[in-house]
Computed example of a mutant assay.
Amino acid sequence: MWRFIHKWGSPKWFYTTTGPWLPWLWSAALILLIVGVVWGLAIAPPDRYQHDSARILYVHVPAAILAQSCFAVMAVSAIIFLVWKIKIADIAAMVMAPFGAAMTFAALFSGAVWGIPTWGTWWVWDARLTSMLIQLFIYLGVIGLRASFTSRDSGARAAAIMTLVGVVNLPIIKYSVVWWNTLHQPATFSLDKAPAMPASMWLPLLFSVLGFYLFFAAYTLTRTRNQLLKREARSRWVKEIALGTGKAS
């Protein structure tokens, strides 16, 4: 396990290994997003009860799922950074935080748009909505805490610790519709139950979710590589790649 983590912690190995992945990730992400969103917004049948207003779920559900998944990956990166001092893990956590905050805001905003015709109001202090709002504040807190330190290492450690503390909110978000009586509907996808909607509706949603995940992976890799080049600008391997004498991506 240590050898595997140490291998991925090598800046040069990480940069040169992940480079060939990017065209495939970006291409697959764009294809799945276009297919899923266009299919869901324009082709899929309207919901029996919510009619065309339910089409926003093809954006709302992937954004909400990704907002939570992104924070979970940040927590794993924080553990790797705090335990093994691997700088790439910290860089990845740093670039994921704004993305996760954007996904959380997108989930809240699209949920508000959905709530107007469905619930008759754009906001209620529902357990799911409130816990997602708290998640947005945690994301912003992690970003702000990192930026508040003049020392990059101190800011990285503080952000990692706050990320691990903030993980406690993830099970609250997930099980809020089970633990409390809420307006928000239960999970759309479940590992132990078949989807309640027909295939003509859940298939485009699945494409959209997968597209969002691949977009997240492509974005994180791209931004992490860019930040890594900035931090390692004076390293020999960066100069070799810049001069074309090293193994380029």
Rank of each mutant, 00 (worst) to 15 (best):
W179K: 11
K174F: 09
V177L: 05
A196K: 14
K174C: 00
H184K: 12
S151D: 15
M162V: 14
T104S: 05
L170N: 07
I138M: 13
P117M: 00
I138W: 10
L170I: 15
A187T: 13
A112N: 01
A156G: 09
F109A: 15
I172W: 09
A158I: 11
S190T: 13
I138R: 03
L170P: 01
T163H: 03
R128T: 09
V124E: 12
P171N: 08
T188M: 12
I138N: 03
I173T: 00
L164H: 11
W180R: 13
G166F: 06
F137P: 06
A160I: 03
H184I: 04
G144Y: 02
L140Y: 07
K193Q: 15
L129K: 10
S110T: 15
A156D: 13
K193G: 01
S176K: 11
R146W: 08
V113P: 07
P198E: 11
W114I: 02
I161N: 01
P117N: 09
V124H: 10
L133Q: 04
P198W: 07
A106T: 14
R157Q: 13
Y139T: 07
S190E: 14
W114H: 09
V165D: 08
W179D: 07
I143E: 06
P195E: 07
P186F: 06
A196Y: 08
R128V: 05
V168F: 13
R157H: 12
I143F: 09
T188N: 11
D153T: 13
Q185L: 13
A160M: 07
F189D: 08
F99C: 03
W122Y: 11
Y175H: 14
S148N: 10
L191W: 14
K193I: 08
W114C: 09
V165H: 03
P198L: 11
L129M: 12
F189P: 04
T130P: 03
H184F: 10
Q135I: 04
Y175F: 15
K174D: 06
